[in-house]
């Protein structure tokens, strides 16, 4: 079952473990300069609001009502990353599609899990995903653009502007595998508590901040996601193997993306302000991030996604204005926070 809890999409699997769940938050962030350079991780600037589509059904077109799921606001050219977590650490295999195109492989939507190529991420090992996997160690950032103008990954790959939005499909680990892992963890916890009795630790290290900023919203067609600036990020190989997942109960969900004006008209709420530019953020001395997981293996990428063009490349090809962004900025040295993956305001 899927619930919405404080703007987090929460996948619960009571038949596997009533205490465990995995969740996904859509994080507001800076749009990376689409300048061919590879950027470090931008910060999280809070979550995008999410609402049940059914609560506003009478104001929505029939085609959207049929989808069910959730609605979220994204301004044109606004960026987003997906923040994953798993309570109790239950491993979950999660497929992520935009416009029904897989963000990891570029293949069309299906209910299948595949390990060749691997078309899913494994929570909680994978802490986040910022975009389309275009190289073994890089993604192109998720950037919202109006569907029907040729920018979205869906249109680039299929030639059609049909779906837009964001789709998820989650499968939990099989019950017997999960119970074995829990037993091992309890043993390890006992051992570490015993070791701690005689250990002493020193203090150190500091924290970080981020900055919200207003920007204008624009009206347009329903939104889809497009490849933006390039960023350093790996997608980790499944360490448990394809047989570890219980594919008997798919949990799937469609998130319809509305532009700011649609969001205000439909929900009556103001959308969140768009963030500062990457340049202003950097000039203010605020941190970028890095994440290193030495024991994880990065997946190779597929030809389909390697060939995606960025928003700026398409705008140039069409002779249109590029979305406003900073120019001439160098990727800054990232803040490496240590063992705990951290990249949010106040963490």
């Amino acid at each position: 079952m899927i619930t919405l809890e404080r703007d987090r999409i929460t996948f619960r699997f009571p038949e596997i473990d009533p205490d465990a769940h995995a969740s996904v938050a859509m994080m507001r962030t800076l749009r990376l300069p689409d300048d061919g350079k590879t950027w470090p991780l931008p910060p999280g600037l809070g979550t995008f609001p999410l609402r049940h589509l059914d609560d506003f059904a009478s104001r929505l077109p029939e085609a959207w009502r049929k989808r069910g799921g959730l609605i979220a606001p994204m301004a044109q050219a606004e960026a987003m990353w997906l923040n994953f977590s798993s309570r109790e650490g239950l491993p979950v295999a999660l497929r992520i599609c935009t416009g029904k195109i897989d963000a990891v492989t570029g293949e069309a939507w299906s209910h299948d899990l595949s390990d060749d190529p691997q078309n899913y991420v494994v929570l909680p090992n994978q802490p986040w995903l910022d975009g389309y996997k275009v190289a073994s160690d890089a993604i192109r950032q998720f950037v919202a653009m109006p569907l029907g103008e040729g920018y979205t990954a869906e249109e680039q790959i299929t030639g059609a502007a049909e779906h837009g939005g964001l789709q998820f499909l989650a499968y939990p680990m099989k019950k017997e595998r999960w119970e074995a892992i829990k037993r091992e963890r309890e043993e390890e916890r006992r051992r570490s508590m015993a070791r701690m009795d005689s250990a002493h630790f020193e203090d150190g290290v500091a924290y970080s901040m981020a900055m919200p900023c207003a920007a204008p919203a624009r009206a347009a067609a329903p939104m889809g996601l497009s490849p933006g600036g390039r960023m350093k990020q790996k997608i980790f190989a499944d360490r448990y193997g394809i047989d570890a997942w219980d594919t008997s109960r798919p949990s799937k969900l469609f998130v319809t993306l509305l532009n700011s004006l649609q969001w205000r008209a439909i929900t009556g709420e103001d959308p969140p302000p768009s963030p500062a530019t990457a340049e202003r953020y950097t000039q203010a001395g605020l941190p970028w991030y890095d994440y290193y997981a030495g024991d994880e293996t990065a997946l190779a990428t597929t030809d389909t996604l390697k060939g995606l063009k960025s928003v700026n490349e398409i705008a140039d090809g069409k002779g249109e204005l590029r979305p406003a962004e900073s120019a001439g900025t160098l990727p800054p040295a990232p803040h490496r926070p240590g063992a705990r993956p951290v990249r949010e305001f106040g963490d």
């Binding site: 079952m1 919405l4 009533p18 959730l70 799937k252």
Partner: peptide, 17 residues
């Protein structure tokens, strides 16, 4: 019991797409 309470939690409706 917990499983009965969980059944009352509002699920996100998944439709046709």
């Amino acid at each position: 019991p917990e499983h009965a309470v969980l059944r009352l939690v509002r699920e996100v409706r998944d439709g046709e797409w």
